[in-house]
């Protein structure tokens, strides 16, 4: 589950997929996660950091993580 290499992200949370030409906006936490993914962090590393930083139950995060992955997949942003 790795982000495609050439995905461009900006500080404002814009995402641009040069392979498809699609643009996306994201909420701040999504932008943060994307940055971590780009930095090569593993999903367990990222989740641990989020649990540490945000007021969220592990179970909730786990559910949202699955949804997050499906969003990225729908958006064609993940390596096949």
């Amino acid at each position: 589950m790795k982000l495609k290499k050439n995905i461009a992200t900006s500080e404002n949370g814009f995402i641009f997929n040069p392979a498809t030409g699609d643009s996306f906006s994201s909420n701040p936490i999504a932008a943060e996660i994307l940055q971590m993914m780009k930095d090569g962090k593993s999903s367990s590393q990222i989740k641990a950091e989020l649990l540490d930083k945000y007021h969220v139950e592990e179970l909730q995060l786990e559910r949202d993580w699955d949804d997050w992955m499906s969003q990225l997949k729908d958006a064609n942003l993940l390596e096949q």
């Binding site: 994201s26 936490i29 996660i33 007021h55 969003q71 990225l72």
Partner: peptide
């Protein structure tokens, strides 16, 4: 204090 959480999401700019 931990930050307020919101589930991550992206939205295609259509």
């Amino acid at each position: 204090q931990k930050l307020i959480y919101e589930r991550p999401f992206i939205k295609k700019m259509n």
